[in-house]
Computed example of a mutant assay.
Amino acid sequence: MKLNFTVGDLTIHRIIEQETTFLPALEMLPGLTPEVLAENRSWMQKAGALDDKDVLILCFQSYVVKTPHHTILIDSCIGNDKPRPQRPKWNMKTDDTYLRALAGAGFTPGDIDYVMCTHLHVDHVGWNTRLENGRWVPTFPKARYVFGKTEYDYWTEQNAKAPVPPFADSVLPVVEARQAEIVRDDHAIGDHARILPTPGHTPGHVAFTFGRGKDDAVFSGDLMHSPLQTRYPELSAKFDVDQPQAAATRRGFMERYCDTDTLCCTAHFPSPSAGRIRRAGNGFSCEAI
């Protein structure tokens, strides 16, 4: 299994917490029909993205990007000790899979300079914090955590209406520890890391582009969950707050990177999870490298 890539002057490491079945394809993608699923079943199974019961297989992972100047972690996955009763595989986990994978890539939590979150959903913020003596503290003690302002404001508002546990246990403790940077879309880290607004999944969802002077790599977050959405960009996920906007954003993203050398690093596609966007009929494909 390929866990690292080199592109331009970047080295990219995948830190996998889980790679597992998630939801039936027809439930996860409400616009998907049984007929279209049948047409695509063979290649989806071959890609490791669909099991024999038509359940989607997703990877839950972070990426660590080494630039010439910084070590940056993108999306901090699921986390341990967190009450997630709606997701049994995530609920009150106590395993060492994630931190072992981080160590296996050659990093300790203290090596991370920045944590960048594409959005603030439960499986993208979990390892922002860890439980220490009954308190949530930042997992990465020296890191600045970068949260988009639109996204942060949205979840602040939602949390005021009704408690949002991942926001309370995995975002607010970072703010209280004064390690958060709540930034606008023109924010950049050095000359290598930039924000690309990609709204739809959540109002403030962003992708991150990396490279000096050009996009050597892009980290797409939950712009898409399954390779089926590259072939059919109009298929939005049930979790997208604005499904029409998510579909338009996804197609625009594919057009932007289609037939370029930019490495697209997805959050949830099955291993190897990264590839280059190519045209395929009226849609696209993410050709694994």
Results as ranks from 00 to 15, higher is better:
P34W: 07
E17Y: 05
L37Y: 02
T20Y: 11
D9Y: 00
L10Y: 02
L37H: 01
T20V: 11
A38F: 10
S42I: 08
G8V: 04
H13W: 06
P30Y: 00
P34I: 10
L32Y: 02
H13L: 08
A25H: 00
I15A: 01
E27K: 15
Q18N: 11
T33W: 05
H13N: 03
Q18D: 14
F22L: 05
L23W: 08
P24Q: 12
T20N: 14
G31D: 05
T20A: 14
A25R: 00
G8H: 03
F22Q: 12
I16D: 12
M28F: 15
T21G: 14
G8R: 01
E35G: 07
R14H: 07
F22V: 10
M28K: 13
N40W: 03
E35H: 11
T21I: 14
I12C: 03
I16C: 11
L29H: 00
F22Y: 13
L23N: 10
F22T: 05
L23M: 15
R41L: 03
D9G: 08
N40C: 04
A25Y: 05
L26F: 09
T21K: 15
E35L: 13
L29W: 02
G31N: 09
L23V: 13
I16V: 11
E17K: 06
E19I: 09
T21H: 12
S42A: 14
I15T: 08
E35V: 13
A38D: 11
F22M: 10
T11V: 07
E35T: 11
T11M: 09
V36T: 15
L29R: 01
